[in-house]
Every structure is written in C-alpha cells, then in structure tokens.
C-alpha cells in the first residue's frame, strides 16, 4: 500500500510507512554506502595495520643495522605511534572535516566527499586495528618468536609466518567489533556530505520535517546491519576456531 500524501503528525506508523515507500531509494543508497564504507574501511585499515604492526614491533639491532636503516626504523616507529595517538585521540567527525576541506584546497579532481569518507574511515580504523594487533601479539608467547629466530628466520619472516597469524586469530573478535563500530560511526561522515544512511535519512525527512519517524527507520536499519554483522563475525570466528581444531 503506497500512501499518496503525508499522514497527519499523530499517525506515527503511517508516517513511517509513508517515508519507507516514498524514500526507499534514499534508504537503499544510504545502506549501500554505509556498508561499503565500513567494509572497505575495515579491510583497508586491517591491511595498513598489518604492515604498521611489523614495523612497530621491529627490534633495532644497533650492531647489524646500518645507521640509515636504524634512522628509518626509528622515524617510522615514531610516526606510527604519533599517528595512532592522533587518530584515536580525535573524533572521526573532526578528521573528516580536516581531510575533506583541507585537501579540497588542492583542487584534486577525484577528491569528492565519498573518496574523503573512504580515506578517513580507513585511516581511523588503521589506528584502532594496529592497537588491536599489538595486544594480539602480546598474547602470543614470546618463545615462539625466539624459536623461529633460532631456526634462521628473520624478524619480518617470524612475524609474518608465526606471530601475526596467531595474533590475527586472537584479534578476530576485536577486528569484527571494529567493523560493527564502523557501521555506526560512518554516520559522522554526513558532515562532509557523504550520503550514507544518516545523511540519506536527513535528506528523506527534510521536505516533510518528520525527523523522529525518519530516524526511527534509520535506527531499525542500523540495528539490523549491526545484528547481521555480529552474526557473521561470530560465524567467522567459529569457523576459524573449528579449522584450528582440525589442524
């Protein structure tokens, strides 16, 4: 049933139905971009965090490394620490404003709100997942790294083959949690005009001022996405654990 005109103010559920049927395209677009931003942000953040973690945990060998190599290792490690402090210590909304409007001044043709949104979510998630991986690494017995080094593996090989696979497995719940947080937190990208679900809802409610009803729909949609994501994350963890048990 499609309602031809806007229901009266006291007809809450009729209004909800009116908004859904009239602005379904807005909501679909919002859901699509929310999921895309969260998936790409989490996957991209994880990939960068993986390399950050290897650099961050590299031990400096003053005897064997060249001065240039030591210099770059120290600078990279300091950069990563400062990066994490800044991105975890400031709201993503502020980061979005600085990145989008800051880089807009350079007048780069592809620098749209959506591109800026992808970059900000990825960079923000990188900071959190790097910390998650660090605690995952702390959970892997240091003796395994020593055993790996004693066999002749380099530090990087030991991290890649021995430590990180275990650290990642231990960090899966926290990484899944980051994805769920991203589903909700991408809403702040509305400030730079990314049409994710929050912004899409704003657009759907602005002609009719039925804000409560509109965001009631948004809340249900966010809740559905986070619940489905939680189920998928749980299933993924269980599959991963089962595989581990079968080894």
């Amino acid at each position: 049933m499609i309602l031809a005109s806007l229901p009266p103010r006291d007809a809450f559920f009729e209004t909800v139905w009116y908004l859904i049927t009239t602005y379904q395209q807005f909501f679909f677009t919002g859901i699509f971009y929310t999921i895309m931003l969260s998936v790409i942000g989490t996957v991209g953040g994880f990939i960068i965090a993986f390399f950050f973690t290897i650099v961050r945990t590299t031990k400096i060998d003053t005897l064997r490394q060249s001065k240039v190599s030591i210099f770059f290792t120290i600078v990279s490690q300091k950069f990563i620490n400062i990066y994490i402090t800044i991105f975890r210590g400031t709201p993503m909304m502020v980061q979005a404003m600085i990145f989008y409007y800051g880089l807009s001044r350079l007048q780069i043709s592809f620098w749209t709100p959506l591109v800026a949104g992808f970059v900000v979510v990825t960079l923000n998630t990188t900071a959190y997942i790097t910390e998650v991986l660090r605690s995952g690494i702390n959970g892997v017995d240091h003796g395994q790294l020593e055993a790996s080094r004693s066999l002749g593996f380099s530090h990087g090989q030991s991290m890649k083959l021995i430590v990180l696979p275990q650290a990642i497995r231990q960090s899966l719940p926290a990484i899944g949690n980051e994805f769920i947080i991203n589903l909700k937190d991408t809403s702040v990208l509305s400030v730079i005009g990314v049409t994710e679900l929050f912004r899409a809802t704003q657009l759907a409610t602005s002609p009719n001022y039925r804000t409560t009803e509109g965001f009631f729909i948004a809340a249900i949609l966010y809740l559905s996405m986070t619940l489905i994501a939680s189920l998928l994350v749980n299933k993924f963890e269980k599959t991963s654990l089962r595989k581990e048990a079968m080894v």
């Binding site: 395994q144 020593e146 055993a147 080094r149 004693s150 002749g152 380099s154 021995i162 275990q166 581990e244």
Partner: peptide
C-alpha cells in the same frame, strides 16, 4: 646471523612450538 642460526639447532625449556 640468520644463515648461521640455520646450522645451530636449539631446543628450549618451554618447547616453543608454533601453536597455530
């Protein structure tokens, strides 16, 4: 040193097997 370590087997008190 990694090349030399390949020729020097080591066994630890706490085994240090790769758990994964």
């Amino acid at each position: 040193i990694n090349k030399h370590r390949m020729n020097m087997g080591m066994v630890f008190q706490s085994f240090n097997l790769f758990n994964h």
